[in-house]
Amino acid sequence: MNPPVATPFFFYLLATTMIVGGILVITRKNAVHSALALITTLLAQAALYLMLYAPFVAGVQIILYAGGIMVLFLFVIMLISIERAAKERQFNKQWLVGIAAAAALGGLFIAIYTTTTKGKTLFPEGQVSYGESQNTQAIAALLFDRVHGTYMFAFEIASLLLLVAIIGAVVMAKKRI
């Protein structure tokens, strides 16, 4: 086995990138800058998946989110007049709901931290269930295998849902079908 690259240094580096990117997404006035920041966040997330020995998920993250969905995001944003969009109100002033949601999330984090680690290190040495080289095959087995195949139905339902969404979008966007 090779020396692992999943050192805490890389974790903190990527986590910082993600957080900074996330903050930039909501603070930038220019929507294209926000989108670029979001892409940075998503790429850092893909790298995090790699650290978790899940290269397949990382690859799919890059293809679908960074390469596909974000391009469509940019596509739409570019058609909007940026100068006028920047003058629009940037934040919804719903402090009450915001504070409540943030407090709930923070509480959740604290609860998980206190109940699961209980004085142990923040990053316990976990067991990797599949090595990097079997990860893709393992996912396929989990999804499609006749013996373990418990996620087949859920997978198909999810794709059906996406299809419905596509049809809905077409129906709403097209003036005349």
Partner: peptide
Amino acid sequence: NIGILFMLGVSS
């Protein structure tokens, strides 16, 4: 392990 996926993803 994901060579071809990596190529398609990064080139995209």
